[in-house]
Design a protein around this nucleic acid. Structure first.
Lengths: 192, 192
DNA sequence: TCCACGTGAGACATAAATGTCTCGCGTGGT
DNA sequence: ACCACGCGAGACATTTATGTCTCACGTGGA
């Protein structure tokens, strides 16, 4: 496990540590700092030098998750084109972030204080706007609120990530299963 | 806060304690035994007398959740009638258990050991059978696997419980939002 | 009235994770 | 070759949750 040159000499790559932490905590949310350090291939003291404590680590993961999710929204250009097509682009773009995202949404500690990250509100606003746009375009039904569709998307992303990690769904089917269920539902439609 | 007579003298109602614990842990999964005891209105020592430790408490909650979920499957008679109608009966029947269920599914500790409760397998089998039956009846599409539909149902139940607890969805809309999305999806169908 | 029993409160010990510190080492730059 | 810097390992103190115990109290039954 080689490390990337950071500044002038060999040092820990912060992002790489965060990715390892995300991978571990997605599977075991109660993992200790020691386990996180070992999973990242660094010493516990070093982990502490970079993140003042467990809380700081979770906050950093939150920031990373928000940034990568926003990057996925950008990559999927969700503000462009028909809303249903935007959703079809969005879900696969979110797949790499899905485990981290499902960890963060269950970390309710992040949402109860008064200093909650405004990134969630930004994400929610864009997703809600997407679903509302779909309704205005006549593509989405209006009896399901945009807020609920947004929440359901999070839930399905989490379920999908879990099902893939558990081997009940193939990674290649992740996007299809989520997109088709979210857009078309389970009922067999007559026009198909 | 009166207690129910249990046996010969006034004592703690185990089920009532479990319900209080479920209500608290659904909102704050990392609540301590002391917080659980206070939420149940009993002393910490008494909580310990009834449940040997935190693990035993979680196991008891697991058992309760499984039993109530199975009771919901019974009440909804999911093996009878058309599959889509069975789903429409099932979701509202699951609503009271939804918070507890969403807590349990995120408690991954329950699923990694070798002594996992066989109740989950029973539940999965019945739900998978329900979705498979729907496919065989021609009511459900066959490109979404029953296992995925089962997983998605869990996810939507969890999202719904969370959205209701957070005030983003009215409790009265819980069943409708979940059922309609699961069965019909977000897309506006031409026949409606 | 008296007794038995479960409870609440609190003291106490234990376990485990956290946070801090020191020190030796090796890399990479000078 | 030398030096500066960050890292790993480990010791240590602290904090927090857990688990156990004792004891006084009050209810409910005899």
């Amino acid at each position: 496990m080689s490390r990337v040159v950071y500044g002038r000499l060999m040092s820990v790559d912060r992002t790489q540590v965060l990715r390892a932490a995300a991978a571990l905590l997605s599977r075991k949310a109660t993992a200790t700092m020691d386990e996180v350090a070992r999973a990242a291939g660094i010493g516990r003291a070093t982990l502490h030098r970079h993140f003042a404590g467990r809380d700081a680590l979770v906050r950093a993961l939150e920031q990373l998750g928000i940034e990568e999710t926003e990057a996925a929204l950008e990559a999927a250009r969700i503000e462009e084109g028909p809303a249903d097509e935007a959703v079809r682009r969005l879900v696969p773009a979110l797949q790499p972030v899905a485990p981290l995202l499902s960890f963060l949404v269950t970390e309710n500690q992040l949402f109860e204080g008064d200093g909650q990250n405004e990134g969630w509100a930004r994400l929610d606003a864009r997703l809600v706007a997407l679903f509302r746009r779909g309704q205005e375009e006549g593509a989405f039904r209006i009896d399901l609120t945009p807020a609920w569709l947004c929440e359901a998307l999070y839930g399905l992303i989490g379920s999908g990530a879990w099902a893939v990690a558990d081997g009940r769904v193939a990674a290649n089917d992740f996007s299809y299963m989520i997109t088709e269920l979210l857009l078309g539902g389970a009922r067999r439609s007559v026009e198909k």
